[in-house]
Simulated scan of single mutants.
Amino acid sequence: MDRTIKRILIIAGSDSGGGAGIQADIKTVTMLGGHAMTAITALTAQNTLGVTGVMPVPAGFVIEQIDAVVSDIGVDAVKIGMIGSAEVVNAVADRLAALDTVPIVFDPVMVATSGSLLADEATIAAFGRLMDIATVVTPNLPELGVLGGSAEALAARHGCAVLAKGGHGEGVDLIDRLVTADGRSTEWTSERIETRHTHGTGCTLASAIATGLGQGRPLSEAVEKARDFVRASLLAAPGLGNGHGPMRQGLVR
């Protein structure tokens, strides 16, 4: 059986504007040579200006989607994004615990690029269960502050790697820092790309990392390749919408 194409399961919400969420994830995985499968946790009505509505998917049906694809197609890596509710967090954590050899990338989505809230306090409080089973967690600086404030402490507490994304930092340089559970760290520094078209950066980065891990890359290499992909996608943004527009995910050689 041909396993050259890796199977990436995306557990996340849908973005009707096509800039983030499942839509960005599918584009990313596809352009990086993987096969994207989905378990949708919520439907959103949104555009580049913000989120006007959210319709959660019941936890039981999220699990039904996961079981449907894993039982037939199989899975080489998992990406978790917008999770919807604490009930869904717990159900997904229970289900994925059985996939103990599959790398899991958890992007702890709390707020959309537009500023709209995408996770309530109960959901955020339950994130620890997903961090416990994750290979790597990818918070931005505000999310890191909510989750505990220190990448080192978070990595040690949950036994996972933490990629602290520096996009919300200050200065002309952007610094992303990867901390492993044993305290080792790696930093990447890049010149900041000045653009308002940044919708979907976090989703794209996490899905690109998941694809790299599914393809057998070491974590640091998967992160480096994913960062390159995001930067290329930012530079290729088509300039759509009146707010935080989408990027253009393309193939990075």
Rank of each mutant, 00 (worst) to 15 (best):
T211Q: 10
T201M: 15
L235V: 05
I5A: 09
E87L: 02
L235S: 06
G167H: 06
D182L: 08
A125H: 04
I26Y: 07
V54E: 02
M31V: 14
I66P: 11
A45H: 01
A24F: 11
I133V: 04
V137P: 05
P142T: 05
R129I: 02
A119K: 00
D15A: 07
R129H: 04
L43C: 09
D100N: 12
G167L: 03
L163V: 15
G34I: 01
R248V: 10
V70R: 05
G19F: 09
R184V: 09
N242K: 14
G53K: 13
N90F: 12
H158M: 15
F106S: 04
T186K: 10
T195Y: 09
H168R: 14
Q46W: 05
V223Y: 09
F127S: 00
S233K: 10
M82L: 03
F229I: 09
L219P: 07
G212P: 08
L144C: 05
D120V: 02
G169V: 06
V70N: 13
L205V: 13
R3D: 13
A226G: 12
I26W: 07
G128A: 05
C203G: 15
A208R: 08
V89L: 02
A155T: 02
P246E: 07
A24P: 04
A39C: 11
G200W: 04
E221C: 13
T41I: 08
G183P: 03
M110Y: 14
M55A: 15
L117A: 15
R3Y: 06
H199Q: 11
L154Y: 00
N140R: 04
L235E: 09
A208K: 06
G216W: 11
G145A: 09
M55Q: 13
P108Q: 03
E194W: 13
M37C: 12
A134Q: 03
I124G: 05
H199R: 12
A134P: 00
K6A: 08
D132W: 00
P108K: 02
W188D: 02
P108W: 01
L96Y: 12
G17D: 08
A222W: 01
A134T: 04
D120M: 00
W188R: 08
G34M: 05
G53M: 01
E224W: 10
G149H: 00
Q249C: 12
G216R: 09
V57T: 03
D120Y: 01
T189M: 07
E121C: 06
H199T: 11
G149S: 03
R231L: 07
R196P: 07
T44N: 10
P218Q: 15
L154G: 01
D72V: 10
A153R: 11
G171A: 11
G33I: 14
M131Y: 03
L251H: 14
G19N: 04
E170N: 12
S185Y: 00
D67F: 07
I193S: 03
K165H: 11
L9V: 03
A119M: 02
V92Y: 09
T52A: 15
L96K: 11
T198H: 02
A236V: 00
T4Y: 10
M1S: 15
A39Q: 07
R157D: 12
E191H: 06
P238A: 05
N90Q: 06
A156E: 13
T30K: 05
T48G: 06
L205Q: 06
T189P: 06
